[in-house]
Design a protein around this nucleic acid. Sequence first.
DNA 1: CGCTTCTTTGACGAGCCTCAAACTGAGTGG
DNA 2: CCACTCAGTTTGAGGCTCGTCAAAGAAGCG
Lengths: 237, 237
Amino acid sequence: MRSLDPILRRLRGLASLSDAEVEFVRGLGDRRERRGQGEQLVAEGAAARPRFVVSGWACRQRLMPDGRRQIFSLLLPGDSFGFGTRPALCSVTALTALDTMDAGALQEAARRGAAPGLARALAAAETLDDALLLDHAVRLGRMTAFERVAHFLLELQQRLEIVGLGDRQRFPLPLTQEILADALGLSVVHVNRTLQQLRRAALLELRSGVAILLEPDAMARVCDYRATTTLEPNKAA
Amino acid sequence: MRSLDPILRRLRGLASLSDAEVEFVRGLGDRRERRGQGEQLVAEGAAARPRFVVSGWACRQRLMPDGRRQIFSLLLPGDSFGFGTRPALCSVTALTALDTMDAGALQEAARRGAAPGLARALAAAETLDDALLLDHAVRLGRMTAFERVAHFLLELQQRLEIVGLGDRQRFPLPLTQEILADALGLSVVHVNRTLQQLRRAALLELRSGVAILLEPDAMARVCDYRATTTLEPNKAA
DNA sequence: CGCTTCTTTGACGAGCCTCAAACTGAGTGG
DNA sequence: CCACTCAGTTTGAGGCTCGTCAAAGAAGCG
């Protein structure tokens, strides 16, 4: 089941999994759900069931009554959401067409101790999410528009490379500038101008949904990007 | 032990506690630690031991190499930090002189099922922290300076009232404008001018470390403030 | 008191936003 | 196959918000 690769790559990057655990995840393949762009997967305050993103992009977000939106994080293929038993603190919305997979059985297995590796991977995933949210708060509160965009693109590059959807320089970016604006706390117009600035600086190329970081290291320097990782890197391949 | 009131008030606001559990918390009173203003309580990446703030204010924050600072949340009397077993994602620093109390025994009791009420309260506290962090991200990303300050003051009013350190209008505010600036993603000068704007609008009074919200409801309207609470309010007094 | 920290004020400029309109490209239907 | 539409991107003009720099008050504190 090739389509589960991002999920497995992500989990194995977060903790070592036994062969049985890998098979267990592969066996989850049923219980898919397909959602269209713009559909809400989880409402704020609702009890969510645990799921993985199989393909497509989603986000956690909140809307203000006057229409302003803040995106807290992007959910990429391989990412999980709805774990933990509490009601959702923000809504989850599909940014593109989306395939998700139910992970209730996985959560249950981890909970009762049947899959220690998976349990560790899920805990690490949660920690990583929290760390990325702090990174995001720093972007929003203390970085310039130029730094925010660069920093955000570097984060996406890293996360997508981990799940096998991009390399060190190139990755899919199926987002409108409006979505970037709502994630980065900027206006659409200013996102547009900032992207042009990155292009003029020969740091970035954008072509039909693909981003190319021409000089990732230089880009990381201008925004003080440092990869956010968990502390237990996977020792196994 | 009157000094433990904020802690007990907060926990009982998050979940119903048995009498035994209340006594258990009271019995924790030893193992205090006193820290001076500016001291770091937890370093980023360090393993933290669980503690309560008994008195004084602290914050979670990150520093950028060039000196920029982002404050993620304030820790008020009654607040806990260092729970959970993972290394700290950001540092914790005393904003005033500070008294903390070790809560290792409490965490242990909750973990092994000996104190279900306390366990629920701790889980609710964590959820609330997460929710407040999302509120904060919305402030940083999508609110004007005026809205940010108003919204932040309303949050503080609510949290302090819960722990018995203020009423509907009045509460202690032992923060410099620089700290407010680093929390709200603004410059000190602009925080100053925004506070004056709130005073001119007859919404706020500040006198020697005490804030007075002259019209909390009007203030809540201008920044669309809605109290962030957990879903299990305490039924008992 | 004299020092330091914090607050306040002014002047100025840059960053970012808003409004508005033109442009592009990918459907879509005639 | 060609308008036509619609979402998204780009550009321009103008202005407000907010930041920076600098210095003057005010307020704690030893």
